[in-house]
Amino acid sequence: MTLSVLSRDWLLDENPETRLQAKLGQSYRMTRALMRNPLAVLGLVIILALLVVAAFAPWLAPYSPIEGSLSNRLLPPSAEHWMGTDELGRDILSRVIHGSRITLYIVLLVAVLSAPIGLVLGAVAGYFGGWVDRALMGVTDVFLSMPRLILALAFVAALGPGIGNAVIAITITAWPVYARIARAETLTIRNSDFIAAVRMLGGSHWRIVARHILPLCLSSTIIRVTLDMAGIILTAAGLGFIGLGAQPPAPEWGAMISRGRTFILDQWWVATMPGFAIVVVSLGFCLFGDGLRDVLDPRQRSK
């Protein structure tokens, strides 16, 4: 029984016998579709690598990310220091590895905070329409009309520098986009017959929004969040670069580039290595997001 339960045929059965089998089968089909896209797989590999590196940073990093010896300062990449050392003699590889934790922390926290806010506000605005819509979208437009980095800057300036405040600042600038997407999606489905049918069955507004509208907005939001991850990383790095994000000696990638700027002509590796890490991770999220869109978009999936 246990063997047959987890077989491929069981998962792909056209006539599942239980809800669980149907749900597992759907996920399995989606995973397979995703795996057929080589670029999405590359993105996934990069994201998984980031997760592994962040989880095992203290064991993976060959040296301490904070302490260095001044006798080793500004060494070029070598067998001992794969990415060279910085102006305080710290191993850049170790700092990049530890920096992945900060990046992941910022990205996940921003996604977890901003996506639900935007999703719920957008769906509520789109579903109820009228003054609810005008009020919520008015607020959204105010936030949307301000340049992201500038607004984040203003908030960090008001709240004080630090990773926590950077996360809050980026969240405040990130949610309006999701609200807009969720609202647009909701407007296309609020008048459809399947919503009218639930209303006829006596479903409450809350039930309709939570169980019928939000699930349909979810995939486009997930796609957008994944694609935005790159932007969030860059904003965090930008805040770090101008000294308003993570504070030294924390090995934040943006702050590291900022420190390396001084030596960019003679010791190129100091700024390049963390920059390279930012590019790779951003690219990973972009590729994975594109792959997700192909799989999750129902209009594409039915074909």
Partner: peptide, 22 residues
Amino acid sequence: IRRVQMVFQDPYGSLHPRRTVD
């Protein structure tokens, strides 16, 4: 609600695309 129900014209639009028959 328990006494009056409706069947819609277009069966392609009256079922939620992500929900099973169940």
